[in-house]
């Protein structure tokens, strides 16, 4: 039984990726930026799983597995960083990370 053309899976992954990028670039909130990163990784996973089915090869799924592991590590470190930043500055606005003293909110 056939499902859909391969390109449709890739289209889905592309759109998801674009959403992740917009979230990453447009939201002025470190937590939302991290969420955007998760969306990006998820889009990549979908593309890999689709490719795995297209070529009937399990390497794609293996890569998706590793992506999940990396995402878990990245999220844990990223959230810890956000917590540290919040503790120091009391804000999660990415602008507080800027080196200019004028924009630093301390």
């Amino acid at each position: 039984m056939s499902i859909v053309p391969y390109s449709h899976v890739m289209t889905l992954a592309t759109l998801l990726f674009v959403m992740g990028v917009v979230c990453l670039v447009a939201r002025r909130n470190l937590i939302m930026m991290l969420l955007g990163l998760e969306i990006l990784l998820n889009a990549a996973s979908i593309a890999f799983v689709g490719a795995s089915l297209r070529w009937q090869h399990m390497d794609g799924q293996a890569l998706a597995l590793f992506i999940m592991a990396v995402a878990a590590a990245e999220v844990s470190v990223g959230l810890a960083l956000i917590v540290a930043v919040f503790r120091r500055t009391g804000s999660v606005d990415p602008e507080v990370l800027e080196p200019e003293p004028s924009t630093r909110q301390r």
């Binding site: 990028v21 990453l24 670039v25 930026m33 990370l97 800027e98």
Partner: peptide, 11 residues
């Protein structure tokens, strides 16, 4: 500029 502009440039 701030970090998000840099990310924007990267993409």
């Amino acid at each position: 500029e701030m970090i998000q502009y840099r990310i924007l440039v990267v993409f």
